[in-house]
Nucleic acid binder design. Structure first.
Length: 224
DNA sequence: ACATTAAATTCGA
DNA sequence: TCGAATTTAATGT
């Protein structure tokens, strides 16, 4: 069974839980590693666990009929995803790909539902998370500049700096420009240009193998 | 696609 | 264990 301190470290939601709920979470969490490029969850498969990224980076995406791929969002260390599919007990509507070597924590469906039924603290976290995602998707709908690479990159990044979804994350993120491109749905060179433009506006700073956000509000503004 | 530069790794003392 | 040399990864155009 997972060490209690490790669980607290990798799962912000576990920290407010009381003794019984915390033990239930402890019993339900397992860890699993995925190689870069591998598929974590297949679209259409029945999904039975809620997942959190301990280390690495995954993207949630969907193949449309004409073969084009739509990336919903990227999830990096500290982020949890899949609550929708677990709650509704329905098949996955999207697939999850590891963009680099990644370790996930998995909370099995039975434990998730138990916490959902018995823990107000757990529900508080869930509601906050769902609300934040709703806001993200409403922003997506409003956006009229989805074709502009700068806006796409800005949106992809802004979602990864969401302070509710990533309570631990600072302003710095380790991510290559290739990974930015995969998340934003643009080529690596285009991602490079977009990042440079954003850096020129003083919204962020690009570094080797990563970037630092200087003005999150303005970064958000690029998309919606 | 190619050239450049940063970082990680290996190897020899 | 230190640092130079080599290899790998990321960036810029």
């Amino acid at each position: 069974m997972i060490d209690p301190n490790r669980l607290r470290r990798i799962a912000a939601w576990s920290r407010p839980l009381d003794g019984a709920a915390f033990e239930r979470a402890r019993a339900g969490v397992t860890e699993r590693s995925f190689a870069r490029g591998s598929c974590v969850f297949v679209q259409g498969q029945r999904f039975d666990a809620w997942a959190g990224v301990i280390e690495g980076l995954v993207k949630l995406c969907r193949q449309s009929r004409d073969g084009k791929e739509i990336t919903y969002t990227g999830v990096h260390a500290g982020g949890w995803f899949g609550e929708g599919s677990v709650l509704k007990g329905e098949v996955r509507r999207y697939e999850v790909i590891a963009l680099r070597d990644t370790t996930l924590a998995l909370l099995d469906r039975a434990s998730f539902l138990w916490l959902f039924e018995h823990s107000a603290d757990f529900n508080r976290f869930l509601v906050g998370q769902l609300n934040e995602r709703l806001g993200q998707f409403m922003g997506l709908l409003e956006s009229d500049r989805l074709r502009d690479p700068e806006a796409r990159v800005a949106r992809a990044l802004a979602s990864m700096f969401n302070p509710v979804l990533y309570p631990e994350a600072g302003a710095h993120l380790v991510i290559s420009q290739e990974e930015v491109g995969l998340l934003a749905g643009v080529s690596r060179p285009v991602a490079n240009q977009a990042l440079k433009a954003l850096a020129g506006d003083g919204v962020l700073r690009v570094e080797y193998g990563g970037l630092t956000v200087l003005d999150l509000e303005r970064l958000r503004g690029y998309g919606g």
